[in-house]
Amino acid sequence: MAKYMSCFDIIGPIMVGPSSSHTAGAVRLGKMARCLLGENPRKAEILLHGSFRETYRGHGTDLALIAGLLGLETDDTRIKESFRLAKEASLAFAFQPADLGDVHPNTVRFLLEGETGYRLEMQGSSTGGGNIVVTEINGFPVELYGNFETIITTHQDVPGVIAQVTQVLSCHGLNIAFMRVARKNKGKMASMMIETDQSIPREVLKEIKELPSMFSVRLVGKV
């Protein structure tokens, strides 16, 4: 359900058409995947589900997803040239129609490889009005909206880790807007997603990274 709280939810956003869900939302999903990959993508296999699968050509969803992977904004008029830009950026891509199961009709799954060989699998949906939700990252179920800065950790699933992380945040006066914990298997790998109201300074990330049992920490900006 869309929330309307401001005049700019009514007149706005400024965007490249034709559809806020099939174009603007698709750009944001691509940007999110780029952020999570954390480097320039070199290879992208993109699975399209439901309405994305049926109408992606006519809505330019394909161009929009690639534009997002290249880091373009939702109002960038070069979105329609994104295939050419991808070539210039040495990004090879392919689209596949897919059935991703019982998910939102506008769902996409990215299988990415970055310039240093890092791989990322991300699944997300465009939920209307340009809003998005990322539902899976590398096999972890998540819930990311791209409206806040988000810290994503992977760590060992042992007691006390969550408390240590939230402790660091509160020490720096950072307020948690939304938090979610997921794990692959008990006692082994777990992941935390923390969205904050304020932007997160580098030293905070460093402090979290230095906590025991922490494997990786990354920061994903607003998209």
Partner: peptide, 21 residues
């Protein structure tokens, strides 16, 4: 038409109805 051709518009209130205002 510009919207349908992937041009830059302002949703008002949506992209589909962006021409009227």
């Amino acid at each position: 038409e510009l919207n349908a051709a992937m041009g830059k518009i302002v949703a008002a209130p949506t992209a589909g109805s962006c021409g009227i205002i």
